[in-house]
Amino acid sequence: MDEVTVRAKLSRYITQEIMRDPDYVLDDDEPIISGGLMDSFSLAKVGVFCEKEFGVFIPDPDLTVAKMDTLRQMVARVLRDFR
């Protein structure tokens, strides 16, 4: 899976399943949690999604607002461990 696909899948998951606003166009550097687009318990949802969708297990110490606040950060974290 390439970067474009990972980004598209993550973006669709966040806008459709979490924000429930599929028309929303999420920018790469838009703050998602600190910007109020999703609440912090959605981080746990993103963790589950990454495991199911990409087979990437992000350990708890990495599931933080500082490390996962933007689409760019999330995509990079997934690609780091993606085989």
């Binding site: 924000m19 429930r20 606003d21 910007g35 109020g36 687009l37 999703m38």
Partner: peptide
């Protein structure tokens, strides 16, 4: 979404 997040302890789910 941002205004609610910054002024309260909840987030809006649907706008």
């Amino acid at each position: 979404r941002q205004a609610v997040a910054r002024a309260s302890d909840v987030s809006v789910n649907f706008v």
